[in-house]
Amino acid sequence: MSLLSLTGLTVLRGSCPVVDRVSLTIAPGECVGLLGPNGAGKTSLLRGALGLLPHQGASSLSVLAPAARARAAAFLPQGREIAWPVSVETLVALGRSAHGAADPDHPAVTRALERMGLAGFRNRRATELSGGEQARALIARVLAQETPLLLADEPVAGLDPEAQIRTMQVFADLAAEGRGVLVSLHDLGLAARHCTRLVLIHRGQLVADGTPREVLTEARLADVFGIRGYHAETPDGPVFQPLGVVR
């Protein structure tokens, strides 16, 4: 069973392919890290897969009607602005719109708030939260959607270390529960530690797809990111640390 299937997905900017014939699948139980340097095409791939950008090739999500797509996949974009001074629980409850009414008392809202450590904030105005707290509230909103697949574009950017680790653990837990996660990341250490699989794209093309150890090789780190790094297996799990630049 596949929660997302891309076949030759291509997204153009003018005549330039920013995503170039990418094929991949996401299955239940996978937490997949989408890696690549700035400008590699990660955001365009996520948006193209959802049908939010014109594309060539095939995506199993983009062919769905909007309502069916909203029940099949939740999407967390990079933008973190909360424009309306609604309560946190009201904001998070918007994730339930895909299933009908946005009910703040729905158990999924409570579960999402608890997972993101926001249970004590549910009656606060979302616009009065700190930037990191607002980011966690927006993650809770997509969690409340409770879809089989979650796509997240740089969800841990700007979060403090504890919130980054907790967020990635939530995504790993979702995969362990049988759901699928595709998460765009720049932190290779978090990706290596929490993702079951990594997909590496460079200049719009898929260049590696496999376990963290298979993807984060010395040659690829140098060719794609221009860095060298340290990778070890420890009693606490895999550890990866960038060490320096090579060019």
Results as ranks from 00 to 15, higher is better:
residue 26 I to H: 04
residue 26 I to W: 12
residue 26 I to A: 15
residue 27 A to F: 04
residue 27 A to C: 12
residue 27 A to I: 00
residue 27 A to Q: 14
residue 28 P to V: 02
residue 28 P to S: 12
residue 29 G to A: 08
residue 29 G to Y: 04
residue 29 G to W: 11
residue 30 E to F: 09
residue 30 E to P: 01
residue 30 E to L: 05
residue 31 C to H: 13
residue 31 C to P: 10
residue 31 C to S: 03
residue 32 V to Y: 09
residue 32 V to C: 14
residue 33 G to Q: 11
residue 33 G to V: 04
residue 33 G to R: 06
residue 34 L to M: 09
residue 34 L to D: 00
residue 34 L to A: 03
residue 35 L to Y: 11
residue 35 L to F: 09
residue 36 G to H: 07
residue 36 G to Y: 07
residue 37 P to K: 08
residue 37 P to W: 12
residue 38 N to R: 05
residue 38 N to F: 06
residue 39 G to K: 12
residue 39 G to N: 06
residue 40 A to Q: 06
residue 40 A to W: 04
residue 41 G to T: 07
residue 41 G to K: 03
residue 41 G to V: 09
residue 41 G to N: 12
residue 42 K to N: 05
residue 43 T to F: 00
residue 44 S to D: 02
residue 44 S to K: 00
residue 45 L to Y: 15
residue 45 L to I: 00
residue 47 R to I: 03
residue 47 R to A: 15
residue 49 A to Y: 03
residue 49 A to M: 15
residue 49 A to Q: 03
residue 49 A to D: 06
residue 50 L to C: 13
residue 50 L to H: 06
residue 51 G to K: 01
residue 51 G to N: 01
residue 52 L to S: 14
residue 52 L to H: 02
residue 53 L to E: 14
residue 53 L to I: 01
residue 54 P to S: 14
residue 55 H to L: 06
residue 55 H to K: 06
residue 55 H to Q: 09
residue 56 Q to D: 10
residue 56 Q to H: 15
residue 57 G to I: 02
residue 57 G to F: 07
residue 58 A to P: 00
residue 59 S to A: 10
residue 59 S to Q: 13
residue 60 S to N: 12
residue 60 S to W: 10
residue 61 L to P: 00
residue 61 L to S: 07
residue 62 S to I: 09
residue 62 S to F: 00
residue 63 V to H: 13
residue 64 L to E: 12
residue 64 L to Q: 09
residue 65 A to L: 10
residue 65 A to R: 11
residue 65 A to M: 14
residue 66 P to Y: 04
residue 67 A to L: 11
residue 68 A to M: 07
residue 68 A to Q: 15
residue 70 A to S: 15
residue 71 R to P: 02
residue 72 A to K: 01
residue 72 A to G: 03
residue 72 A to R: 14
residue 72 A to H: 08
residue 73 A to I: 00
residue 74 A to H: 02
residue 75 F to W: 09
residue 75 F to C: 02
residue 75 F to D: 13
residue 75 F to G: 12
residue 75 F to T: 12
residue 76 L to H: 01
residue 76 L to F: 03
residue 77 P to E: 09
residue 77 P to T: 08
residue 77 P to S: 11
residue 78 Q to S: 04
residue 79 G to P: 00
residue 79 G to Q: 04
residue 79 G to W: 06
residue 79 G to A: 09
residue 80 R to S: 14
residue 80 R to P: 00
residue 81 E to Q: 10
residue 81 E to T: 11
residue 81 E to W: 09
